[in-house]
Simulated scan of single mutants.
Amino acid sequence: MARRSKRNNPEKLRAELVSLLTSFKQKLVEDNLREQVLSLVPANYLLRDLGSSLLSDNSADSARDRILAYFRKYPSTVLRGEELMVVAGISEYARRIRELRVEMGWPIQTGQALKEMAQQGESLDLLGCEESLKKDTYVLIKNHQDREAAFRWNLANKIRKSKTSVKSKIIEYLRENIGKEVIGEELKYLASGRSEWARRVRELRTEDGWPIATRVSGRPDLEVGVYVLEEDKQAKVHDRKIPDPVRIEVLERDNFTCKVCNWSHENRNRGDRYRNLLELHHIEHHSKGGKNEADNLITLCNICHDEVHRNNISNDELLNRI
Rank of each mutant, 00 (worst) to 15 (best):
Asn58Arg: 13
Leu46Glu: 09
Leu47Val: 14
Arg48His: 09
Leu55Lys: 04
Leu46Gly: 09
Ser62Met: 02
Tyr45Asp: 07
Asn44Gly: 12
Asp57Leu: 07
Asn44Met: 09
Ser52Asn: 06
Ser56Ile: 13
Ser53Arg: 13
Pro75Met: 00
Leu46Gln: 10
Ser56Pro: 04
Tyr74Pro: 02
Gly51Val: 04
Thr77Phe: 04
Arg66Ile: 07
Asp65Phe: 03
Leu50Tyr: 12
Ser62Gln: 07
Leu46Lys: 15
Ser62Asn: 03
Asp57Thr: 08
Ser56Trp: 05
Gly51Gln: 05
Arg72His: 02
Ser53Lys: 12
Leu50Cys: 07
Leu50Trp: 12
Ser52Gln: 05
Ser76Asn: 12
Leu54Asn: 01
Arg72Asp: 00
Ser76Gly: 08
Leu55Trp: 02
Tyr74His: 14
Asn58Val: 10
Ile67Glu: 01
Ser76Val: 03
Tyr74Ile: 04
Asn44Ala: 11
Lys73Pro: 04
Lys73Ile: 09
Ser53Trp: 13
Leu68Thr: 06
Asn58Pro: 09
Ser52Ala: 15
Leu68Gln: 05
Lys73Val: 03
Ser62Ile: 01
Arg66Cys: 07
Leu50Thr: 10
Ser53Cys: 13
Ser56Cys: 05
Tyr45Glu: 12
Ala63Val: 03
Thr77Met: 09
Arg64Pro: 00
Asp61Gln: 13
Thr77Ala: 05
Tyr70Asn: 01
Ser59Met: 11
Tyr70Trp: 08
Asp57Trp: 07
Tyr74Phe: 14
Leu68Arg: 02
Ile67Phe: 03
Leu55Val: 07
Phe71Val: 00
Leu46Asp: 08
Ser59Tyr: 14
Asp65Asn: 12
Leu47Gly: 07
Asp65Met: 06
Tyr45Gly: 01
Leu68Ile: 06
Ala63Ile: 03
Ser76Glu: 12
Ser76Tyr: 04
Phe71Gln: 00
Tyr74Arg: 10
Asp49Arg: 02
Ser62Leu: 02
Ala69Phe: 06
Arg48Thr: 05
Ser52Val: 03
Arg48Leu: 08
Leu68Met: 11
Asn58Ile: 09
Gly51Glu: 06
Pro75Cys: 01
Ile67His: 01
Ala63Pro: 13
Arg66Gly: 11
Phe71His: 00
Leu50Glu: 06
Leu54His: 04
Ser59Pro: 02
Ser62Gly: 07
Leu47Ser: 12
Lys73Met: 15
Ala69Gly: 09
Lys73Asp: 14
Ala63Tyr: 02
Tyr45Met: 04
Ser56Val: 14
Ser53Leu: 14
Lys73Ala: 15
Asp49Gly: 05
Ile67Met: 09
Asp61Glu: 15
Leu47Tyr: 12
Asp57Val: 06
Ala69Val: 05
Pro75Arg: 01
Ser56His: 12
Leu50Asn: 08
Arg72Lys: 15
Pro75Tyr: 04
Asp61Met: 10
